[in-house]
Design a protein around this nucleic acid. Sequence first.
DNA 1: AAAATAATTCGTATTTTTACGAACAAAAAG
DNA 2: CTTTTTGTTCGTAAAAATACGAATTATTTT
Lengths: 107, 107
Amino acid sequence: MNSDYTDKQQKLARYAKALGNPTRVAIMEFLLQQKTCFFGDIHEQLPIAKATASQHLSELKDAGLIQGEIMPPKVKYCINKENWLEAKALFGEFFEHCVCKNDKCCG
Amino acid sequence: MNSDYTDKQQKLARYAKALGNPTRVAIMEFLLQQKTCFFGDIHEQLPIAKATASQHLSELKDAGLIQGEIMPPKVKYCINKENWLEAKALFGEFFEHCVCKNDKCCG
DNA sequence: AAAATAATTCGTATTTTTACGAACAAAAAG
DNA sequence: CTTTTTGTTCGTAAAAATACGAATTATTTT
């Protein structure tokens, strides 16, 4: 009963949705640069409240792009390597689709 | 007064948001395969009402990923090549970020 | 002129997202 | 044991996304 869409389409959309917000893009880029992984350092970079930052981190985590590790009283976040590579592959495939066919279209 | 985020971060997020829905991913893939460009043919592929399909197409158009050409009484849609290539480049850059630094993080 | 075709827009309802401050939890430090 | 530090969760509000059927627009066909 689940899908009118392929698994790949759904996964791609899921990752895209997670990246569909500039704050979350900024978080990902910060984590990828790897200056550090602690929540506080991430929050420091962002022009938003702590609660909001935490929410965005949750969404990235739910989407599978990052993971968190509790190191009391701090929380260390980082990229989820496996899923990051899956996302990279999915977007790679997606953007490899040829657009040349379109030369005849719309102009 | 606009941005706490870079132009690239905002553009990437904008494109990602447009792709953050399986219906819209399916539309893009259909247009990229280029079987045809007419609204009716696109709608035919989708398990949703005409009005909803039209809405999704509008969002893809607003995000710049596609464009429409009126050919009464039909409308021909296609990929917006320029922006598609921009999106491809932005995602390409984004996913090139190294993840190896993370070996020390989270395990 | 009337009817048919193709797609958008309108009105509306439901759900989800985004954001914040305040309350809370859990461990460390005093 | 109390306080401080660090993040999450709660309650809530406002905005945006998703979806539909009905009404509308614009052209073509009859």
